[in-house]
């Protein structure tokens, strides 16, 4: 019990029970994210020292450095952090919800659903403002999630059936995306394919303003929903027993997961396995209590994307490899390992 400390307000009904380990792990990871972000911002075709980057951030940098950092490098870093956090939280929610460590929006086809509607949006609604793209991918993600539940439902949802049907749906969605691209004009094809591999190449401040409100709202909602995820992790019967409105909250959480996925996909495309890896790493660090997983996974997700993108950008220069290639390279073997570990259950 020394693992926790409590904070209580004397007059208002406000109180917190804080897991000490979670607190310092979160602070350390936040610091690490900041450091990596600064170093990464400085690296590229023209190297800028971290100190110079900090100067630019404080508004006292040189003219050329300021231009490079603010216009070209920083949007990509910020988008990387936002997308990583969104994917990590989406995965954490989904794993708590379906009580399955194999669950992740990309593995279950939810990301695929987002891609289908996003590509369709780019194709058929060219005249509409790009700021509706997250909305479009949210709709696709939600439709696939609902379809997944409907197909997997047979007096409840067993984890294995969910994964099997999810894998099936994922194949269907990628076929649909291929079909859409085949029939699209040449100019769009290149853009769509690059986007699909999962890339934050060439993002701008417009992308940041497009996704940040969604992500901030959804993260706040996730914090509010923490207690509900915690009891849902104990199974629907226990959740009912302690007074959780299971079906309603289940649906709300699923929507939050698809909204986070949709937002991330709208800018980053299909960046695979971050949503699977980040919650796992977080649980290893601080245990499965959702409040802990939430606060830690935000930074784990951000760090994975930042580091993968840094390697993708710098190691093969002048080639700029899509970040999704690297997350898959780490994530796919890990997924196989998880399947292998669970083979007897």
């Amino acid at each position: 019990m020394k693992t926790y400390f409590s904070l209580r307000h004397r007059r208002f009904p406000v109180s917190l029970h804080i897991h000490k380990r979670t607190l310092w792990v979160t602070l350390l990871l936040a610091l690490a994210t900041l450091v990596v972000a600064i170093i990464s911002t400085g690296m590229g075709e023209m190297n800028i020292s971290p100190i110079e980057v900090v100067k630019v951030l404080l508004g006292i940098g040189g003219e050329q450095e300021t231009l490079i950092v603010q216009e070209f490098r920083l949007p990509r870093i910020v988008v990387g952090i936002l997308v990583g956090a969104a994917l990590a939280v989406a995965g954490s929610i989904l794993q708590g919800l379906v009580r399955n460590p194999l669950a992740a929006p990309d593995i279950l086809g939810i990301t695929g659903g987002a891609s289908v509607t996003a590509v369709a949006f780019l194709l058929f609604f060219e005249t509409l403002s790009i700021k509706w793209l997250p909305g479009a991918s949210f709709i696709g993600a939600t439709l696939i999630a609902l379809l997944l539940y409907a197909l997997a439902w047979k007096k409840g949802v067993t984890p294995l059936r969910l994964v099997m049907i999810g894998v099936g749906l994922k194949i269907v969605t990628s076929a649909a995306v291929t079909l859409l691209i085949t029939f699209s004009p040449f100019l769009l094809q290149n853009r769509a394919i690059l986007w699909l591999t999962g890339s934050i190449y060439g993002v701008s401040w417009d992308d940041v303003t497009m996704i940040s409100p969604w992500i901030v709202i959804l993260l706040i909602l996730s914090v509010i929903m923490t207690g509900r995820v915690n009891v849902q992790q104990l199974g629907s019967e226990i959740a009912t027993s302690v007074g959780n409105t299971v079906n309603r909250d289940n649906f709300l959480l699923l929507l939050m997961c698809t909204a986070l996925t949709g937002t991330a996909v709208a800018v980053g495309g299909e960046i695979s396995f971050v949503a699977l890896l980040a919650p796992h790493i977080s649980k290893q660090l601080v245990g499965p209590s959702f409040g802990s997983v939430l606060s830690v996974s935000i930074f784990v997700g951000a760090l994975i994307i930042l580091l993968a993108d840094l390697v993708a950008r710098v190691a093969f220069a002048p080639l700029d490899i899509p970040v999704g290639v690297f997350t898959s390279a780490i994530g796919a073997p890990f997924f196989i390992y998880l399947l292998y570990k669970k083979r007897n259950q």
Partner: peptide
């Protein structure tokens, strides 16, 4: 759980 909300987490 039935006694808590997101502000009152550990009375």
């Amino acid at each position: 759980y039935p006694y808590q909300n997101w502000l009152q987490q550990w009375s």
